[in-house]
Write a protein that binds this DNA or RNA. Structure first.
Lengths: 218, 218
DNA sequence: TTATAAATTTAGACAAATCTAAAAATTAAA
DNA sequence: TTTAATTTTTAGATTTGTCTAAATTTATAA
């Protein structure tokens, strides 16, 4: 049986290892989970014993096959519940994260599948993040980061790659919502910030923000 | 902050104290939660310190005002999630208990209220149990136990007062469902069992079963 | 290449929730 | 009303997940 704390570690490791093979450092996990490095080492030993991760002392951890499967299941549940909260219960996209953090740990395969069907097998959550299917496969994405677009090019907002509340609220204040049209007017060299238009109204955003906005070009 | 274990103790105490004033014994709680009496004593001390219960050593516990409020909130959440699972996700009434046991601990007042509204403010769960409203008030019930009906009288099934899976499955096998019409044909004196008809088909049920079936007469 | 800084692990402790075994209090019975 | 049975509590231990402080390993820089 996998515990709630263990699930959170698996999720953190998945999030930190973009390429699911490469290993993640103890400190990175500690920062992600807002805990101490020594606690992380302790927990890594436990999940190593359960063969959920591969671990080389001082060299970091990576998800095993079964650990990756578990982690993807949690992400799937998190994102499906977010869709439920927004599309059925009328929550705003910046209000759902904390509740989904709880709901993602509910254990029932039948519930997840029924929820998926009820929601119409959505491919993306309200932040534009892809939802893995029952077999753990992610839908292919055709989006780019706004920071990667050339001057003069444009597209539509299809997601964010970070979903903390203050970031989402900042986006709201700029009228940057899912589906909004964005064009890159100017790229400022010395700090990589951007002059853009959002639905034809101009704005100035930092590279930090641009890096976390996912854009689909026509 | 109230922990998951504490919530389960409050719920058990509420369930065991029909009249919410009278006190509940240590052993009764241990049996209800399938744990040891010594563990119960330990936990009672913790929730006493938090003023969730009133406790007199060797004399049992009763819910305090705030403890009762908490316990009713948990029951409300449990029953609303059961309604969700049955009416929206097409679960059977005998499949929802274990999942609702998990969902009842999700913490978000906004979620509970939004769910309540989404479900149309239901007054009863799929087992016929009353759902307390936002203020903790239970809807009035006009049902009687089948075991209390006179020979010759009849009514409709509106609920059960026990919801373990094997009981509900037994009811299913007898075609006793919510809304089914039941008439009392004969009461057998020596064991208090009953000859009844269910939607005009005859059956014989024990007093044990009859005591747990809630009937509404016209 | 050796010294220093940074990252990681180990050792030992703590709180939560549980357990077993023994002691104390209450209830029931002779 | 004294004894026996039952219930409840206490004492001490265990597991999980965390912490601080110290030790060890790895990385960096002079």
């Amino acid at each position: 049986m996998i515990t709630l704390a263990e699930e959170n570690y698996l999720k953190a490791i998945l999030k930190l290892s973009k390429n699911s093979e490469d290993s993640v450092s103890t400190n990175a996990i500690a920062e992600e989970l807002d805990t101490k490095a020594s606690s992380v080492t302790d927990m890594i030993k436990k999940i190593t014993d359960k063969q959920l991760v591969d671990y080389v002392p001082y060299r970091g951890v990576s998800l095993s096959k079964s650990g990756l499967k578990k982690a993807i299941e949690i992400v799937r549940k998190h994102r499906l519940w977010e869709v439920f909260l927004v599309t059925k219960l009328q929550f705003k996209w910046d209000e759902v994260h904390d509740i989904a953090e709880q709901l993602e740990h509910i254990k029932s395969q039948k519930l997840v599948d029924a929820l998926d069907a009820y929601l119409g097998y959505p491919q993306h959550d309200p932040h534009g993040e892809p939802i893995p299917n029952k077999d753990g496969q992610f839908p292919k994405s055709f989006s780019k980061r706004l920071s990667e677009l050339e001057k003069g090019s444009s597209g539509q907002v299809v997601g964010v790659s970070q979903d903390n509340q203050s970031f989402l609220q900042y986006l709201n204040s700029l009228n940057i919502t899912l589906g909004a049209s964005i064009s890159v007017i100017q790229k400022i060299d010395f700090d990589d910030s951007l002059e853009i238009t959002i639905n034809n109204k101009s704005a100035h955003i930092s590279n930090d923000v641009a890096r976390n906005l996912l854009i689909k070009q026509k």
